[in-house]
Design a protein around this nucleic acid. Structure first.
Lengths: 104, 104
DNA sequence: TAGCTATTTAGCTAATGTGCTAATCATGCA
DNA sequence: TGCATGATTAGCACATTAGCTAAATAGCTA
């Protein structure tokens, strides 16, 4: 499976997207990640394995624990490439105000 | 299901991503789209329904045919928001040269 | 080594996704 | 109306996914 395909597959699940968000500030142990979900640790472990297989997170052992950290580069590159391939070239919005949400 | 979730789900399938790419230059009839795949028309029709349900394409009847066109805005917005939520703020690459692909 | 914690792997089930063919719906035209 | 074309919907089969519990593995420390 192509790298990009793995990444899109990985992003299809909401739990996995949330894991990536949680990892943005910095690395966390598998258990610390699992603690933020109402889901069993083995299930989270599997999600982490899928994210790892897609190259979106990296694992590093820290004694007893496994620290997972975000690998943002392939994510940014894959999504960026896809947007380039699909969306018309356009100026970026100056600011995405959360308050007034442009109706649609 | 949230809009963003629908969009990520829709992007999980390679056929659907390809359909979006094919639609970039302009609208095409369902049959014209199906002709570009080695897959039955009903299968493509279902993919189009999923893309439509995610708001990524719009259908307009043209006599006998149904013309599908790309709706790039929600795509760009959803992926852009996700990148902002996950990736560290970083300067854009100046140029993504296709010829020499930076090894990784 | 034994025992403890952290994490993954195995094995199972239920739900979802994707493809096909056949049938149906929609439109245009003689 | 009757028929042809374009497209979707129905119904089925098969594969994949995502969750769980139980069991196994990895590393630490007494």
């Amino acid at each position: 499976m192509q790298e990009a395909a793995k990444i899109f597959r990985a992003l299809a699940d909401p739990t996995r997207r949330e894991i990536l968000r949680i990892l943005k500030p910095g690395a966390l142990a598998a258990g610390e990640i699992a603690a933020q979900f109402e889901m069993s640790a083995p299930s989270i472990s599997r999600h982490l394995a899928i994210l790892s297989g897609a190259g979106l997170v990296a694992a590093e052992r820290d004694g007893n624990r496994l620290l997972y950290s975000l690998e943002s580069q392939p994510l940014a590159e894959t999504l960026g490439d896809f947007l380039s391939a699909v969306c018309p070239t356009q100026r970026r919005r100056r600011r995405s105000s959360t308050k007034k949400g442009k109706s649609r």
